[in-house]
Structures are given as structure tokens and as C-alpha cells.
Design a protein around this nucleic acid. Structure first.
Length: 577
RNA sequence: CGGGGCGUGGCGCAGUAUGGUUAGCGCGCCUGCUUUGGGUGCAGGAGGUCCCCGGUUCGAGUCCGGGCGCCCCGACCA
């Protein structure tokens, strides 16, 4: 490709709106342009990277028996009604000319399940792995970081169909290995972490994280075992605390705390510290109210409460219901005097605490000297609080959790029968019994990978693409287009490189060399070939974007040697397994 | 949805407090010359509904009201 005929509008200064390195560099390098918040055009350079990422995930899925198809972006709302997902607030909605409601596809479990329920009816047709690479639409509350979190984005989504849990496990592990290979080939160092399934539901699931300071997710890692988890999922061990004696603790006493609702306000008012308080959070799990107790300086992890009850959904109770249950406005709930049929769960930590402060279930009042087992029945103990850096590891007795930021580039789920049951996707097994199909789903953010790759591979001068996903493998820089010898040599080398199968961008633009060098560094093509003053000695210079050490090659043999260099660089990204 | 910030040629910004010539600067763009191994220099030139609507005023980029858009933090996040 000749740069003089290409479209790569680089910018000297990054638009003010961009903060993350990947966002800035992708805008400056002419890879993407914003059309609206979270809506981007992929310019030619960006599109080439996207295509390479797509090709890698395609090859790796095909390798394990996946079959590609393509589903519509226009999804009839009634399909989502079947699984209860039509009310989600991130859905883009529209109506056709007959006022029939549609949504723009945000993920495709319902569509694929609809197809499969009409076509798969026998165990003989499974295992089955279908996938697509397609545009997804999610009206995110807050798009962020360019293509890291966009409202329209490119996603790879695969769906598996099996006859039993063991077969799903086998399939899941195949996908897991395929994902590891995909990210290896992209040059993305990933960490696999336990994750929360969210509204997609199902059994075990894991996320593939790129560790980067700009990441949105908190990841906790045990420093002794291999355990790593998304902070919203991360387990904590039961510290097996011994309850302190309650003899000698004065009786619980109600004290006035006017307008002190938050932990900070109560502490300030009663002149104490948050670890002496026990927060009472009133939640709704699968529609039923439940109380959860955590120490005042801790945060409740609602998913943990949900799992403790074996539920599938969790939300905070509304103010009105709280008033009904406690007889007090929001901010003064406590465990003493709650309705006897209301389940009360408490974090393990509370077991080691007595003589604490709680809400009084009365407006503008708290209770002091509260003891569990005395003032209210012993609660159900569970791991309920949000894990944070410094907490003990759930997997190693001496392990400590440390925190890093991550960009989620992939998420794989064992769905089980959640969708097949709801939508009636049944099959007949060898014994003639009808059963729901066992499903898995596997997502990978293709356009997010573009950002993640840049986030993981850049320096102060620009991007340093791994050669496997670089828009071009080599850039040929003609230093002085006015110099006939240089131009002739560059033209000849350009032809030769193409003949050797090298993807080369030939910067033949009528620009000063400084502009070309800056642009080459910015767009991150891994091999830079400089045709300049050394031409008079029959030589060109070759250097890697990554280290810049120049090496002189004879013009006559340069193309072959560069092609060999390309192969060598690519080999480093070839998965070993 | 809560908090903070922003909206002025393609990009980065100044001007807005205290309303007043023709709205300015750098980069980029066009023309000519110059230069040719890290965003060259000189000269000339083009390019603007100052986000939109309404109001105040003799006069609004600037003041007032409303709206829209964008960014960051949080909430949320399949």
C-alpha cells in the first residue's frame, strides 16, 4: 500500500476528549473517529487491526470445531420476552412501520436458542458450537475510553449445545484453551479470573483480563496461590472468629442520633469508629426481602448475598418497603426488632464482634451495646462483604490479596439450561427422554481488543503493535522523495517486499523525513525499513519499532531478509500448546 | 441517575470576570520559494451560524432562562 494513496489521517495533537493512552493514540494515529458518544468509525488502519483480530478468533474457533454463522442485529422484542430480558434498560429499541417492537441485538442467546430449538431435536446432533462476529448495541449508561466501552461495538460470540453437564464442561475447557491461544496470538497477556455471571446467569464463568492501569475492573490476586477473581466475585475465607463474651456488656440502649444516617455521620455523632458499627442493609433476593449485616467500615457484596440464598437476582429494597419492615425511614435500620420471618444474614466478621452500634429501627435513633444472640437471634453466617486489597486469600492460609486493574476482553459462561428451558429448546436422548439442551456462551470483545492491545503495547512515541495484529507488518520509509536514487531503490524494494508476501506500507508521501518517522512510530508498524542516504552504499536500514536499533542490509537481499524477519517475529506469538 | 468540567475554523487553545472596532494565536490546509535522516524556514492565502432556541440591551462569543451535545469520577455494566 502506498501511503500517498492511502487514508491515514494522523493528528499531531490528540483531541482533548481522550484521556486513556489507547484512546489518544487510536485517535491520533488515525485508527478511529468518533461519530457520537460510544459510536466510532474504524478508519482503514483500525479496520485492518480489527480484521486481523477477527481472523485469529475465527481460526482458533474453527480449530475446535466451531461453525460460523451470522445473526441479525434487528431482534424482535418478543424473543426477549421469552426469557424476561426485554425490559433491560441498555436495550436500544425501535419500531417498524407496523409498530412492531424491535431491539438492536445486545447479545444473541435468544436468537441462537430460537434457531436451535427448531433444528436440533436429537442427542445425535450434538455437541454443537456455533459462533459469529457481529456488531452489538448496548445503550451503556456511560460509554468510556473510546472503543473500550462503546455503545456500538464488534463482538465475537459463540454458543455451545450439549447433552449433559460433563459434555458442557469438556466444551467449556476447549473454548478456554482456544481463548488462551487467541490472546497469545494477539500478544495480549491475559489473566483468567473468576467472575460474576450477572443477569446472564448460569453456572461457573471466567473472565479474561488484560492488566492495565486504565482498566475498568478491579481484580484481586492471591500472592501465594493462583487464585484471581474479579473484585465483585472474589471470595473471602471464614476467619473463624471467636465471639467475645457478652457478660458485662451493658443492656442495649437507644440513643438519639438526629439526621445521622450514614456510617460517617453516626460515628461523628457518637464519637466512635466505623468498625464499631454494624450496617443493616435491606435487600430483595428473587423478590423476597432479606436483611444483611456487615461491619460499618465494610461494603456489602450483593451478589454474595444472592448466592448465599441460592437466588438469581438481587436489588436494594425501595424506601417504602424499608419503612414498612422497620417502621423507620431509610438510614436507621437495625437487626433488633425486625419481623421474625425476615431472614437475617451476617458477614463472618460480625461473629467476632459484640457490643456494637446499629440502627434502632426508629427515626433519628441508634442502639448501642447491641449483641447478637442476646438482643436479636444469631444470624445466618456467610461471606458477604466486598473483598479488597490486603484481605486474606480464600485459597491459601498465608496468602494475601493484592489488587490490579483489568480490561475484560473475554467472558466465558456455562449457562446450563437457563435459556433452553425458558425457550423450550429440548432434545431427545438415547433413552428417548426429552431434556433441555445444556448451553454455554462465550464472548470476546473484538473492538475492545483493539484498545486493549494498544493499552498493553505503547510508549511515549506511539503504538508498538505485535506483528500478528499490526495494520501492516513493515513500513517502508522513503526519506527523500526528490532523490532519484532513493526513490528508485524504494520503489524496487516495495515491489520485492510485496513479492515476498510482506504486508508493507510504503511511505512515498512528499513529506519531510521527520513527519514520516513520527507517523511510523505513532501507528506502530513493527518493522521500519528506511531508504535514505545509505542507498549510495547499496544499503537500507531495518529496525524494529520496539527497540529502534538500526541494522544495515544490502538492498539486493533486503526483501528476503525482511520477510524472514516477519516470519521470526510472528513465530514468537505462536501458541505452544 | 448523582458529582465535576467543557462546547469558539479540521486539531489544540485564548478571548467571557467588567457586553462595544473587522473574533485572535499555534498546528494543519492551499500557492510560491526554501529545506530533505526525527513534525524545516520565509512570504502570501483560504477557512467561523463563537452548540441551539429564546430573552435583556442601542449593541451579546461575553449577561439571563431553557435545551442539546461531549468528557471525567461515582452508581450501573450480559
Amino acid at each position: 500500500m502506498r501511503a500517498s494513496h492511502y487514508f491515514m489521517p494522523t493528528l499531531r495533537e490528540a483531541p482533548a476528549e481522550a484521556e486513556l493512552p489507547s484512546h489518544r493514540l487510536l485517535l491520533r494515529g488515525g485508527f478511529i473517529r468518533k461519530v457520537a458518544a460510544g459510536v466510532y468509525t474504524y478508519l482503514p488502519l483500525g479496520w485492518r487491526v480489527i480484521r486481523k483480530v477477527e481472523q485469529i478468533v475465527r481460526e482458533e474457533t474453527d480449530r475446535i470445531g466451531g461453525v460460523e454463522l451470522f445473526m441479525p442485529a434487528l431482534v424482535p422484542q418478543e424473543l426477549l420476552d421469552e426469557t424476561g430480558r426485554s425490559g433491560l434498560d441498555i436495550l436500544f429499541r425501535l419500531k417498524d412501520r407496523h409498530q412492531r417492537p424491535f431491539t438492536l441485538g445486545f447479545t444473541h442467546e435468544e436468537i441462537i436458542t430460537d434457531i436451535v430449538r427448531h433444528t436440533v431435536s436429537s442427542y445425535r446432533q450434538m455437541p454443537l458450537l456455533l459462533y459469529q462476529i457481529q456488531t452489538k448495541f448496548r445503550d451503556e449508561p456511560r460509554p468510556r475510553g473510546g472503543v473500550i466501552r462503546a455503545r456500538e461495538f464488534i463482538m465475537y460470540d459463540a454458543y455451545s449445545f450439549d447433552t449433559d453437564a460433563d459434555a458442557l464442561e469438556t466444551m467449556y475447557q476447549k473454548l478456554r484453551v482456544a481463548y488462551v491461544r487467541m490472546f497469545q496470538r494477539m500478544g495480549l497477556p491475559t489473566l483468567i479470573v473468576d467472575a460474576e455471571a450477572g443477569a446472564i446467569g448460569g453456572g461457573s464463568n471466567e473472565e479474561f483480563m488484560i492488566i492495565a492501569p486504565g482498566g475498568e475492573d478491579r481484580v484481586l490476586q492471591c500472592d501465594r496461590s493462583g487464585y484471581a477473581a474479579n473484585a465483585e466475585r472474589c471470595e473471602l475465607p471464614d476467619p473463624q472468629l471467636t465471639p467475645p463474651p457478652i457478660e458485662g456488656v451493658p443492656p442495649a440502649e437507644q440513643v438519639a442520633t438526629p439526621n445521622a444516617r450514614t456510617v460517617e455521620e453516626v460515628c461523628a455523632f457518637l464519637n466512635t469508629t466505623p468498625d464499631r458499627l454494624v450496617k443493616t442493609l435491606l435487600m430483595r433476593v428473587d423478590g423476597k426481602p432479606v436483611a444483611a449485616l456487615v461491619r460499618g467500615d465494610r461494603e456489602l457484596n450483593p451478589y454474595k448475598l444472592m448466592h448465599a440464598l441460592g437466588g438469581e437476582s438481587v436489588e436494594m429494597l425501595d424506601a417504602e418497603t424499608i419503612q414498612q419492615l422497620t417502621g423507620a425511614p431509610v438510614g436507621f435500620a437495625g437487626p433488633v426488632g425486625l419481623p421474625p420471618d425476615l431472614p437475617v444474614y451476617a458477614d463472618y466478621e460480625i461473629r467476632g464482634l459484640q457490643d456494637f452500634i446499629t440502627g434502632a429501627n426508629a427515626a433519628d435513633a441508634h442502639l448501642i451495646h447491641v449483641c447478637w444472640g442476646r438482643d436479636f437471634p444469631e444470624p445466618l453466617w456467610a461471606d458477604l462483604r466486598v473483598a479488597q486489597a490486603g484481605d486474606p486469600s480464600p485459597r491459601h492460609p498465608e496468602g494475601v490479596l493484592r489488587e490490579v486493574r483489568g480490561i475484560e476482553v473475554g467472558h466465558i459462561f456455562q449457562l446450563g439450561v437457563k435459556y433452553s428451558q425458558a425457550m423450550g429448546a429440548l432434545f431427545t436422548d438415547a433413552a428417548g427422554n426429552q431434556k433441555p439442551i445444556i448451553m454455554g456462551c462465550y464472548g470476546l470483545g473484538v473492538s475492545r481488543c483493539l484498545a486493549a492491545i494498544v493499552e498493553a503495547h505503547h510508549d511515549e512515541d506511539g503504538i508498538r503493535f505485535p506483528i500478528t495484529v499490526a495494520p501492516f507488518e513493515a513500513i517502508l520509509i522513503l526519506v527523500n522523495p526528490e532523490d532519484h536514487d532513493q526513490r528508485a531503490a524504494a520503489e524496487q524494494l516495495y515491489e520485492a517486499l510485496q513479492a515476498h508476501g510482506v504486508e508493507v506500507l510504503y511511505d512515498d508521501r512528499d513529506e519531510r523525513s521527520g513527519v514520516k518517522f513520527k507517523d511510523a512510530d505513532l501507528i506502530g508498524v513493527p518493522i521500519q525499513v528506511v531508504v535514505g542516504r545509505t542507498v549510495k552504499d547499496g544499503q537500507v536500514e531495518v529496525r524494529l519499532r520496539a527497540d529502534k536499533t538500526p541494522e544495515k542490509l544490502p538492498l539486493t537481499d533486503a526483501a528476503a531478509q525482511i520477510a524472514a524477519r516477519v516470519r521470526a517475529l510472528k513465530a514468537a506469538y505462536q501458541p505452544s500448546n
